[in-house]
Computed example of a mutant assay.
Amino acid sequence: MRLHRMYCVIPLLAFSILIVACSKREIAEADATAAAESSADAGVAIMAEAASDNAAAAAPQKSVEAPAMQGPGVDPSQMASEVASQVDPQRRFIRTAQAQFQVVDVYRTALAIEDEVAAQGGFVVDNEIASQVQRVLSRPLGQGKRLELAEYTLHGELTVRVPSERTQAFLRAVAAQMEFLDRRSFSARDAQFDLLRQQLARQRAQDEQRELGDAVQAGGKLGDKTDAIQSRGTARASRDEALIAQKEFEDRVAFSTITLSLRQDAQVRRAERVDVDAVFRDNGPGFFSRVGEALQAGWRGCLELVIALMTVWPLWLLVLGAAILWRRWRKKPANP
């Protein structure tokens, strides 16, 4: 009977397990379908959001850009100016320029600038380079040596002359040697009236010389001739000065004057020096010798003190007399 019941229960259990497994599979498939649908919906939403972002980016709007940091080096455009290149057929300009900047190596930059000046058809007027010590630190190394560290900076001053029409090209070429531009200035002074003044002065000198020559040839007294000759010499000197001034003026117009100031970052010089104090200390006298010298010096000091006291012997006599009088006055009996 029990065996029959077991045979009836086992098929029922197997059927129940099969039904549960089928239901779990249907639930998993439903969950997967729902997840796929939700993923699709999310993808559509993301695509729509991206499309809206692209449309917003395509629309014109104001953008705020952060200021760019300037790195080492100078752009040639920073050394450009219309002042250095303007041309007017009715005017004559005297051009000058100044620039202060930092370089990597003052000596190499000075040589490169001189080469560029020669390439532009100019010449160098002044070239001065000097070092300036900021501070010096030292410490003993032993064995009579001392380590010295000196902080110093290099400065250079160059004055060059280049053809006026090549001023702009020269300054642009020099920009390649700069690390940082501190200051630059340009000047183009209209010199047409100065030129006219020079021409008129020269013409006056020539006219005065010609008139004096005519006066000398006309004859007259010896004294008048002598004065006329001296005046003629003065007129010739004025003519020569006017001619020289005109040549100088034309030179200043033809060649611009450029002053360049160079500086370099601080550097440190390391050197080993002789420690003089240590050398004297190591080669000085020994302990007993110093003790003997101290005793001798003390004895000599005592003798000098005695001599100094003997030189004021009148004072000691006055002190002794005052002491005697004081004792007598103390011993005098008081009146009843």
Rank of each mutant, 00 (worst) to 15 (best):
L137P: 01
K331C: 08
T226G: 05
T109S: 04
T109M: 02
K225L: 06
D227K: 10
A205V: 01
F15A: 15
A245K: 05
E116W: 02
I244S: 08
T234D: 06
F123V: 06
G73W: 12
P333Y: 06
L3N: 14
R239V: 03
E151Q: 01
W329V: 05
K221D: 15
E116F: 02
V44D: 07
A56D: 14
A97Y: 00
R184H: 13
E211K: 10
A56Y: 07
R161V: 06
A56P: 03
D182Q: 15
F101E: 00
L137Q: 13
P89R: 10
P333H: 07
P72K: 07
E250D: 12
S77R: 03
A36M: 11
L13E: 02
G122T: 12
M79P: 01
L200R: 09
F15E: 05
H155C: 03
A45I: 09
L12E: 13
I307A: 11
V103M: 04
I244H: 09
M310Y: 05
N283V: 03
A84F: 00
P336A: 12
V103E: 01
F123H: 15
I19M: 11
V106H: 04
A254C: 07
V162R: 00
N127V: 07
L318Q: 03
L196S: 07
A119Y: 08
L147H: 05
Q100K: 13
E128Q: 11
I324T: 12
L111S: 15
A48M: 10
L318T: 03
G219E: 02
T96M: 05
T153S: 13
A55Q: 10
W299A: 14
A323F: 09
A57L: 14
V64E: 11
A323N: 14
A169E: 14
L260Y: 01
Q132I: 08
R161A: 09
G43D: 10
T226Y: 06
R92V: 03
L325V: 14
F180T: 01
R91M: 13
V279Q: 13
Q203G: 03
L260K: 00
L212W: 01
A245P: 02
F288G: 12
G321W: 11
A150L: 06
V83Q: 02
D224E: 13
D41E: 14
I17E: 10
A14P: 01
S81T: 02
D75N: 10
A130K: 14
Q132S: 11
N335K: 11
F123L: 09
S39A: 15
R108N: 02
Q199H: 06
E241Y: 08
A118T: 13
D75R: 04
A175V: 07
A215T: 04
M6V: 14
L3T: 11
V319H: 07
I307M: 07
W326H: 10
R91N: 13
A242N: 05
I113K: 01
S164N: 11
I324N: 10
P336Y: 08
L262D: 00
R263A: 10
V319C: 07
G71I: 05
F93I: 00
V64H: 09
L315A: 10
A80F: 10
A175P: 02
A188C: 08
P314T: 05
A34K: 13
F101T: 00
R189C: 04
R328D: 09
S289R: 14
K62P: 07
E148N: 09
D105L: 04
R290M: 15
L262S: 02
S261A: 15
F280R: 13
